[in-house]
Amino acid sequence: MLDFIVLFLTVGIPLSSALLLASLGESVNQRSGIFNLGCEGVMSMGAFVGMMIPYAVGGSGKVAWYVNLSGLVAAALAGALLGLLFGVVVIRFGAPQGIAGIGLQLFGTGLAGSLYRHFIGGAEGVAGINAIRIPLLSKIPILGDMLFSCNPMVYFSFIMVPVISLIMKKTPWGLRVRACGTMPRAADSMGIKVQRTRYEALAFGSAMAGLAGAYMSLCYAKLFTDTLIGGRGFIAVALVYFGQWSPVGIMGGALLFSLAQALQLAVQAYGFATFPYEFLVMTPYVLVIVVLIFASKRKHVGPASLGKPFNREMRV
């Protein structure tokens, strides 16, 4: 039984990182008033770009470390770039964000898949970034394996929880972003450049989604496929609602979803072969719906102008 729980957690925690990063990024987007349903596409591009650079350059030892790092940076940049493209459509032109998000999703996943087929082709893997064991702490029985022998990006994703929280609460930029998401007119009258702030938030949030994708290809699976992201982008958007825009809540949601997924993997691994695995695979999705039902019952705390374009000279 203990084995089972350990397996369940050691699988579950790394699974949650991609969701956590993407969802935190999406929460920043939404705080500024932009609903980016195309997160999935951004993650795909991040995953492809993140893996492409180490694959093309190769190298070993110290060099590999730098190459991997530049892969991550490139993934973040690719994400930010896609975010800005989306920004032109929804901020500059004020297009409906749900539909435009679907467009971004198709574009991003399609482009990542096409580029992958063209430049890499078959199922090639990369060495990627491996887990590091933190000295001493990883020696703690059970906990050491579970919590202190993870991939550096896993630590990074969990560090981002307080970091995002601080950025949104304590920095002038965070204050501006929140003002733009709640009452852009007020922000504008105080001399804040609403559209610019939204671009910034969108680039930042999308860069995080790009990193989340790179985590999947470079750290988790160490390869790229068309279905690598497999709907994680959409789940990430749902988790923002689940977490009610609070980084800690989002972390809870990401862990809950990933643990549910780990549980179904563990159940499969422990061989209840007669039980159809499809029903296990679908449980996390059912869980998200159930959780969304309860999340919406709570007091509404979301950004009031979420999804509403802002144009100063438009007369309503």
């Binding site: 596409g41 467009g103 971004l104 999703q105 198709l106 574009f107 991003g108 996943t109 399609g110 482009l111 898949g113 096409s114 087929r117 068309d226």
Partner: peptide, 8 residues
């Protein structure tokens, strides 16, 4: 996948 790119 090119079709997805065009659609998007």
């Amino acid at each position: 996948n090119t079709i997805d790119v065009l659609m998007g």
